[in-house]
Design a protein around this nucleic acid. Structure first.
Lengths: 228, 228
DNA sequence: TAGATTGTTAATCGATTAACAATC
DNA sequence: TAGATTGTTAATCGATTAACAATC
């Protein structure tokens, strides 16, 4: 160890994924606070709203910097801005949506995406009867054209709402085209190469995990965890 | 400590919630195996399919008993049956669905519920123009009647697909009527009394947690965790 | 029998919480 | 100033993994 030379790299530890998954919840709660005209909030107050401890919020934020003022708390507007920056929400993300059945159509029409930095940039299906028809003002395109559209628009995010048995094949083609993150509504675990993120929306599994407790009438701690 | 008296209660530890949330994934994978005609599986093979380690599967199952045979693995049919029993899926669960917009209607039509022990027992909305109309063969009822229907049918599970600003009020009334577990699609954290389970389906939050990595081009470990 | 795989224990790893000096 | 609340450290808690004796 070289004397007098402080090489304490102080390697900035990467935030755990569980922290990254909480940030959007913080951001959303801050948006609601702002709508209510509340401009300042303590970690305690924020935590009470989303059932998270104050310590956890402070610890989570500490991975990214110092955002509050002792004795005061956080400036809601500023903290929201900073979390959105961290999450990459300072610009819009174009998303490919594959599978325009009942669910896919509902997703396409959902207002909540556009407002939050997610822009549905293309609807794709393989059913010839659907191709060419419109959902609101967006045409349903052939999934065969997805590759081209994804490349042209530099799309890196996709939502899959196809039946389970088609999901893997769809994922493979999306990844080939350049997609690097997939939100899948299909009830099957996808196999993807390193460097591709996959997350799942799985209402049946969630319901089944609650029937476990209902069947036993168990009351417990993790009953209202915003992360689940 | 009384000598010679072994009061080692060996208190059966309650399985952690994270384990309960994995059981439905195991069950589903076993169903697929069965469809493929595979009758026997090792923890390793099962784990490979759903990106979970073999050790974790064995450890998880050990909370509930011994289901395998050394040197052989698990009987797919038997293990599935046992996990379904554990999850309370040996009978159907009637579910109240509140909020029949685009999303609610898609949920109502989803075939995957019925097949998996979830029976949509009532559709509720507050919009007079919708009340009385049909989704497939089910009438949309007034949310004012939810209390009666829930009590009459002994419904303890509900799905909320209403706008965020109405979700808390809907949850309050459902809980009053007897609901003890809620799956909420509304982008807001619900406050419920002890003894009530709440879980969330939150595609915007999930997408936002992935844009974090896309914005950085980070490749990492937790990229394809079936639990997320 | 030899090979495979379980169930379980102990070790490791990681996340949450508690506590408090710093400071607004 | 006194009171409040942050950011951070250390302690605690909990979950995952590795390893292996038991045994099919």
């Amino acid at each position: 160890m070289a004397i007098g030379v402080e090489v304490d790299v102080d390697r900035m530890e990467a935030p755990p994924d569980v922290v990254i998954r909480r940030l959007p919840l913080y951001a959303r709660s801050l948006r609601y606070l702002l709508q209510e005209g509340i401009e300042s909030v303590s970690s305690q107050e924020l935590g009470d709203r989303i059932n998270v401890t104050a310590a956890q919020i402070r610890k989570d934020l500490s991975y990214f910097g110092e955002f509050g003022k002792q004795g005061i708390g956080y400036d809601v507007r500023k903290l929201l801005q900073q979390i959105e920056d961290i999450l990459g929400l300072s610009h819009e993300w174009p998303v490919a949506l594959v599978g325009i059945g009942h669910l896919g159509a509902a997703i396409a029409r959902y207002e909540g995406f556009r407002q939050q930095g997610i822009r549905i940039a293309g609807l794709f299906d393989s059913n010839p009867e659907k191709i060419g028809t419109m959902i609101d003002d967006m045409p349903i395109l052939s999934f065969d054209d997805a590759d081209t559209v994804i490349k042209e628009q530099g799309i890196r995010l996709a939502i899959i709402a196809v039946p389970a048995q088609r999901a893997q094949e769809v994922a493979d083609r999306l990844v080939m085209a350049g997609v690097r993150a997939i939100l899948s509504y299909a009830p099957t675990v996808l196999q993807v190469p390193d460097g591709v993120w996959v997350r799942y929306i799985d209402p049946v599994a969630v319901l089944h995990s609650m029937t476990y407790y209902l069947a036993r009438d168990v009351s417990g701690a993790r009953q209202n965890d915003p992360e689940t």
